[in-house]
Amino acid sequence: MKLFVSHSALDAHHDDPDGRTVMRARFEENGSPRYVLYTIKKFGLDHDAGFHLDVELVADDIEDDLETVEAKLQHGDADLIDIDYVSTARERADGAPIVGIYPYGRTVGGLVVPADSPIEGIDDLAGHRVGVVRRLDKNWILTRAACREFHDYDPDEEAEVVEAGSKSGLTAMLERGEVDAALQFWQLIPAIVDGGAYREVLPMSDLVQRLSATDEKIPVSTFLTTESYLEAHPDAVRGFREAYRAAVDRLRRDDDLWRELGAEMMDGADDAIVTAVRDGWREMVVRDWNDETVRGMHRLFEHLHDVAGTDVLGVDRIPEGTFRLEV
Rank of each mutant, 00 (worst) to 15 (best):
R92S: 05
D306W: 09
E63C: 15
V294D: 02
A182S: 08
E28L: 14
D18F: 05
V220H: 06
I273R: 04
G165H: 03
L45N: 01
T39S: 12
S6F: 09
M265Y: 04
M265G: 03
I119F: 05
A272Q: 13
R238W: 12
D82K: 09
D249R: 10
R259P: 04
L224G: 00
V220T: 11
G314I: 10
G196I: 07
N290R: 11
A12T: 08
I119H: 02
L202M: 15
T68N: 07
F323Y: 09
E70N: 07
S8V: 12
C147H: 00
T21L: 12
E242G: 10
D94L: 13
E29V: 10
D316S: 10
G100K: 02
E175A: 08
P114H: 08
K138W: 12
G169H: 08
R282M: 07
A164H: 03
P17F: 04
V130H: 06
W258R: 03
F240M: 08
Y38P: 00
D15Y: 09
T322Q: 00
A213T: 04
D116T: 06
D270C: 07
D194Y: 09
A243L: 07
H298K: 13
M1Q: 14
L224E: 04
E149P: 01
F43W: 07
V294F: 03
V208F: 05
R299G: 10
D94I: 09
N30M: 09
R241E: 14
S168K: 06
F223S: 03
G105M: 07
R282I: 10
G31C: 13
D154M: 01
A246Q: 15
A269R: 01
P219A: 10
A145Q: 03
V285N: 06
M297H: 06
C147K: 01
T226F: 14
L10V: 13
E178K: 13
S8W: 15
A246F: 06
P17I: 04
N139E: 04
L207F: 01
V58R: 14
F323R: 01
G280D: 04
D65T: 12
S117H: 07
E264T: 09
V307A: 11
M266R: 05
H298Q: 10
L73D: 01
V193R: 06
D84F: 03
V307H: 03
D137Q: 07
A145D: 03
V179S: 02
I101F: 15
G196M: 06
A159Q: 11
A96E: 15
Y102R: 06
K2H: 11
A146Y: 01
S205K: 03
H303G: 15
D48R: 14
H14A: 15
L257V: 06
A308E: 01
I141P: 00
Q74D: 07
E326K: 10
A12F: 09
E120N: 14
V248T: 05
F150R: 00
E216N: 15
